[in-house]
Amino acid sequence: MAIAERPAQRGTAPQPGAGSGSDGAPLEFHVFKGIPGEEQGEVTYRVPPVTGMVVLDAIHWIQKHVDTDLACRWNCKAAKCGSCSAEINGMPRLMCKTRIDDLPDGPITVRPMTAFPLIKDLVTDVSHAYEVNRRIPQFTPAADEPSPFVIQEMDLERIYEFRKCIECFLCQDVCHVLRSHDLQEQFYGPRFFVRVASLEMHPKDTVDRLEAVRTEGGLGYCNITKCCTEVCPEHIHITDNAIIPLKERVADRHWDPLRAVSRLLLGKR
């Protein structure tokens, strides 16, 4: 559904990468534009191709030469900050890391994330994520734990992976609990299960977040369909290494009568 077609104003400026990339037929982009409560839809742009081009390059070209007010969020353009999340051909991805030559031929659709409320064009309101993060108690070592810590790498091995998270929120976007069922109030979402897992598995942390992650975090809403893992640009095994271990820890407490008996008998946690 295009509300307009805007051919690139070729000739108004040097073509991107002129002389440094390959030429070819212009690429067709269908980019979502709009503001809540107003006319919205996809606008067609034709963008000259450049060798090794990523989707964000095309958006920048459009901003520079066609639509100076096309809004998108981006910072580093090196897949390290996690700002330029969008849905490219319907799949949640980072625009800075999606190479045009990895996409099938034909028009390329770029839309904002679905699970977050739209602000404008490709930019959504991700404040929900920051609010969830505030609810998760921070790392808290024992007050008498001597500093500097002595920790074996073996004990941090699992957590290193979780700390790779760049908070692009693509996992939150793709998760059907948030995306299709709108359970924002009852569900932390994959990114924050990763966060909780990184804290819970830290050898020096003393706070217990399991009850919170089971109740207000809605861990049980996750049905292990693993889309979060599929979209993660940092290749974090969100489901296998964070969510399932958390579910197992919750099962230790709530679904394991054998452990309950042993807890009673031995008086251990």
């Binding site: 809540p36 409560g37 839309r111 977050f116 409320p117 739209l118 602000i119 309101d125 404040s127 709108d182």
Partner: peptide, 10 residues
């Protein structure tokens, strides 16, 4: 969801 949630969507 933020204030603009209900009326927006994409």
């Amino acid at each position: 969801k933020g204030a603009s949630a209900g009326d927006a969507g994409v």
